[in-house]
């Protein structure tokens, strides 16, 4: 229980967030130190992967939301109508 408390404590969550952000910054900065040997021009841009990963995920989440709007049904959908034979 103790360990649980520590992880669920808002203060440690804030610390975790801070550590995470530092990690993010470090990973972007490390991009400056390496030679990417790009296959495509776009790959050579500074921080491309970071930005691309973030944006791609946003797009996918939004896309899923839109699809969910049309296709989401309560999880009793098939069972309720007795279609399940």
């Amino acid at each position: 229980m103790k360990r649980g408390h520590r992880l669920e404590d808002p203060r440690s969550i804030r610390k975790l967030w801070r550590g995470f952000l530092v990690l993010l910054a470090l990973s972007v900065l490390a991009g400056a130190l390496i030679d990417p040997k790009p296959h495509f021009a776009i790959e050579g841009w500074f921080g491309f992967h970071a930005l691309y990963g973030f944006v791609a995920c946003l797009v996918m989440i939004v896309g899923a939301k839109v699809l969910g709007w049309c296709l989401k049904k309560p999880d009793t959908y098939y069972a309720r109508d007795g279609h399940d034979d």
């Binding site: 993010l24 990973s27 992967h49 973030f54």
Partner: peptide, 22 residues
């Protein structure tokens, strides 16, 4: 390779960021 590890980390960490932001 350094390049591969760093770019992969960027990609993954920032998608992690997207997850918690959203």
């Amino acid at each position: 390779t350094a390049a591969h590890v760093v770019t992969q980390l960027q990609l993954l960490l920032f998608s992690g960021l997207a997850f918690f932001v959203m």
